[in-house]
Amino acid sequence: MSGEKIKKILIFGYGNVLRGDDGLGQMLSEKIEALRLEGVTCESDIQLEIEDSAIAAEHGIIVFADSSVDCKEPYEFTKLSPKESVSITSHSVAPEGILHLAGLCFNSSVQGYLLAIRGYEFNFFVDRISKQAEQNLNEAFEFLKGFISDNCEIHI
């Protein structure tokens, strides 16, 4: 970060809440939303779609929150670059693809980050998360609050 604070930040949690720990991204977004922070928009969905690029373009920073089967515990936070190539298994769009589309279609230079939260159990039709994933979620939540505070013109 350059030190200049951003006015608007988007937290976008995605994943399938009916596949156990896959719902971590959505749950994190909902936890942040409950804080009702001015300048912070929270969205959640099962997957990223092309129209999310339009929402991303309205913000200075977007943090994508998703569960991961193999990231470090309890979470990994990485800066993303727009990428022209997307997964061609793409019923959804990759976070980098959203950034790229936001730039191409809306001349946006939104900064993107991925907050991957380590999950463990991804069985179908399970609407609860594992105990360890819950701990990881809480740690990711504390981290994200700090990130928002450090980078946005808001007070938590």
């Binding site: 092309i50 929402i55 022209e84 061609i88 693809g97």
Partner: peptide, 26 residues
């Protein structure tokens, strides 16, 4: 070619069409 078979390639070559697609979805 496979690298062209996605929405980003459409956006690169036909940007107006890509914007329309995104905004119609929205």
């Amino acid at each position: 070619p496979p690298e062209m078979r996605n929405i980003l390639a459409v956006a690169g070559k036909f940007p107006e069409l890509a914007v329309q697609g995104v905004m119609m979805r929205k």
